[in-house]
Amino acid sequence: MKRAVKNTLRGYLFASPWIAGFVVLGLYPVVMSLYYSLCQYDVLRIPQFVGLRNYRELLFQDHYFYTAVWNTLFYTFIRSPLVIAGSLILALIVSKAVRGVKFFRTIYFIPSIISGVILSVLWLWLLNPEYGFINSALQFFGLPGPLWLIDPHWSKPAIILMSVWSLGGGRMLVFLAAIQNVPAHYYEAVEMDGGGWWAKFRNVTLPFISPVLFLWFILEVIFSLQVFVEAYVMTKGGPLNSTLFYNLYLYNKAFDDFDMGYASALAWLLFIIAGIITFIQFRVSNKWVYYSGGAEK
């Protein structure tokens, strides 16, 4: 009995750094954030309780809010499938046992180690309409290049292009691992039936890796909703608010306007939006995700 008490005390002692952090930087802030979202609060004065006013203003008066939601959803729903499809194709290509394939895998992965500010600054230059790499390359093939970050229609696709470049190789390795786990005899069965590569992909590879694909669809959406640094560094939300993403708007409200109550309400709405999308993904998943353990349905 005494031993068990001692063990428990020791357990709490070892876990105490996390427990302290959880209480001070987790639980308490969540409660306060909820409270702030019901207040007018500029950090200098004490929060003034205003009830649901922030939420009402956001939903019914603030057209920037809807611009930010639209931009972020556009970004999320175009980027996530593109990144996943692109890296899946890459994974299929490098899953072939040809000479030098390991070398190519490493090359494809390299851009994945660049992120955040560096990535944004590099692409600010690569996307320069007149002297950047992308348009120079397009011109080399005789294609006209768009104005990218300067054109409100092309600014979001420009940032999406950048993320495909920077994420493709990393996700490729994730999917490659999944593809390599598919038992070979299933492919042999398709071959015996005279099926080609498409039949193999459609009937064997895809079902087998669908749980991994599903997981990364969920993660990809959550990551995409967080987009911030790219817009802050590259466009500041412009041109014409075409890259005013949700978290950039939240940052502006919180740390430029010091409207902390309003920003807290924004944070909770984002949490709700992310929750809804994830919920829908789970609901749709039993239509296409196959668990080979037999736990489907």
Partner: peptide
């Protein structure tokens, strides 16, 4: 621990800043 992974940092960012 697992539950805190689900929470976006934007939710806690402002109170943590205040602290």
């Amino acid at each position: 621990v697992i539950a805190t992974m689900m929470l976006p940092m934007q939710v806690t960012m402002i109170p943590v800043f205040v602290i």
